[in-house]
């Protein structure tokens, strides 16, 4: 199964998120991640949904989402032609003997250390999912205490934008 990224413009109302989430569970679609935030137009929010499935599933997801009155526009983002990012906070075990090694690894991934204690380090890292997976893999040996991920957000490369038709 492949991952597909959908950008969905929705009305910025209460209840829209539950309609979208409910649709996924009712139709048996799998969401990898779903993020939502307001756009440059305060009446409109933008969701980025990463769906796991084949072409049939993605087409059905798009069509069923389009039927929701609160969904304004949907676009499937092409992986090669879009930029995607995820923000992650990672708390790993670290003491005097491992701290500097972890810091070096984080530097290689261009992450930041945002908090430190006698026994832990908290790492901030953003990037495409693959990069994050690679870092997580590298620090696993030290013992991961907690991971918090925002889920993927994505945007088209170049001057393309997702516009609302006002016809």
């Amino acid at each position: 199964m492949a991952k597909h990224t959908l950008s969905v413009l929705v009305e910025n109302h209460a209840g829209v998120l539950s309609r979208v989430a409910g649709l996924f569970s009712r139709r048996g679609f799998n969401i990898d991640s779903l993020t939502v935030g307001v756009t440059e137009n305060p009446q409109v929010s933008r969701m980025t949904i990463v769906v796991d499935g084949d072409e049939y599933i993605v087409e059905q997801v798009s069509k069923q989402l389009n039927k929701l009155i609160d969904v304004i526009k949907i676009k499937q983002l092409d992986k090669a032609d879009s930029v995607s990012r995820e923000l992650v906070l990672l708390k790993v075990n670290a003491d005097a003997s491992t701290r500097s090694e972890i810091i070096q690894i984080v530097e290689i991934f261009r992450g930041n250390i945002v908090d430190v204690s006698k026994t832990t380090l908290t790492i901030e890292i953003s990037g495409p999912t693959e990069k994050i997976e690679a870092l997580v893999d590298m620090v696993r040996q030290f013992g991961i205490r907690e991971i918090v991920r925002t889920g993927t957000i994505a945007i088209d490369r170049g001057n393309k934008i997702i516009e609302i038709d006002n016809t």
């Binding site: 929701l68 009155i69 609160d70 304004i72 609302i164 016809t167």
Partner: peptide
């Protein structure tokens, strides 16, 4: 009370 004459729902066309 004013009953609107038309509707314009961005997500429903």
């Amino acid at each position: 009370f004013i009953y609107p004459e038309s509707v314009n729902i961005k997500g429903y066309k």
